[in-house]
Computed example of a mutant assay.
Amino acid sequence: MSRKSATGGPVPVLVGERLTRHFGGFVANRDVTVALPHGKVTSIIGPNGAGKSTLFNMLTGTLAPTSGRLLLDGDDITGLPQHRYAGLGIAKSFQITSLFPGLSVIENVVAAVLAHLAPLDIWSGRRHEIEARHRALHLLEIVGLTTRRNHRADALSHGEQRSLEVAVALACDPVVLLLDEPTAGMSPEETRAVMALIRHLAEDRAVGLVEHKMGLVMEVSDTIYVLHQGEVLAHGSADEIQQDTRVREVYLGAHKRRAAA
């Protein structure tokens, strides 16, 4: 179901409002405000050390902000225990895969669906098993792994494992899907497939993306936030970001420092 504001535009589902995070005397993020609308892909980019991972961890509930608020559909969820996030409709996929390698592809997804349907009785919730298997097959179809459903997870290619992790993240039918480096280590062909998948997934939810591959970011993003030294340097469409002189200077400076090292 599409969410529209009174003006007809997309409604922000997840909003980070003036998020700040301290680690002792170090400020990783300062007064960062981001909005993830329904039906859109919102990307977060920036040089190494810009604060992307810290911001991602605050948006997913892994880290509590030192100050600022996290709003889901207007409700303040700041500081809630991390396990509550999936129940609220926020799912995440991290850069490092977190699958059950000895289980089959479909068993990984069935386990995730059962955790959502019967969180206190994951292994013995028999009445949910048929429903969970149907749901798992549907999710595997979405991510293109139907023919690999009976293979062990550790027998999949790296790209297939990332796709499986997305299917696991979708098990709770999230309203917000947060992806950290979803194409890390992928071949160009696998990256193109994931680009198409991300656009498809964004049709029914808000998608947040942290990604280093600028070609992918510019192709799939509706809005891009550029972080620099823990703060938002710029945000806007791909065209606006590409034309922003401050963004070009930050990235050019980063490239020069790497080349000189």
Rank of each mutant, 00 (worst) to 15 (best):
A28I: 01
G79N: 10
G87E: 02
T66R: 02
L103G: 09
H38W: 15
G25N: 15
K52W: 06
I44P: 00
I44K: 09
L117H: 01
Y85D: 03
F56N: 05
E141M: 06
E131H: 04
G51M: 05
L59I: 00
H116Q: 10
A28F: 03
W123D: 10
S124F: 15
K40S: 14
A118F: 04
N29A: 07
T78Y: 06
L99I: 14
V27G: 09
I77D: 10
S124T: 15
N57S: 13
T54D: 09
L55T: 12
V109T: 06
L114E: 14
S43I: 09
H83M: 12
R135I: 10
A112V: 00
S98G: 08
G144D: 01
V27A: 11
T33F: 02
I130S: 15
T42L: 06
R69V: 05
T42P: 06
Q82T: 15
P101F: 05
L140E: 01
N108V: 05
P65G: 02
K92Q: 03
A64H: 11
S104W: 09
L99R: 01
V143K: 04
R148S: 14
A28W: 02
R133F: 11
L63P: 00
S93E: 00
P101Q: 01
A115G: 12
H138G: 03
G74W: 05
D121Y: 12
P101I: 04
V105R: 01
N48R: 06
Q95S: 06
F100N: 05
L63M: 08
I77N: 04
L145W: 09
L63Q: 10
R30Y: 12
R69A: 12
R149I: 11
V143T: 05
P101D: 02
A111I: 03
T146V: 11
V113W: 08
K40V: 07
E129H: 10
S124Y: 15
H128W: 13
L137A: 15
F56K: 08
R127C: 00
A91C: 03
H116C: 08
G125A: 14
H138Q: 15
D76Y: 07
A91S: 13
L80I: 07
P37N: 08
H22T: 02
A115Y: 08
D31W: 03
R69F: 05
F26W: 14
W123K: 13
L55C: 11
A86S: 11
W123N: 10
D75S: 12
A64W: 09
D75L: 13
L72M: 08
L71Y: 11
N108I: 06
V41M: 10
V109N: 02
T42Q: 07
M58N: 10
S67K: 13
K52M: 09
T147C: 04
P37G: 14
L117Y: 12
G87C: 10
S67L: 04
H116T: 07
K40G: 09
N29L: 01
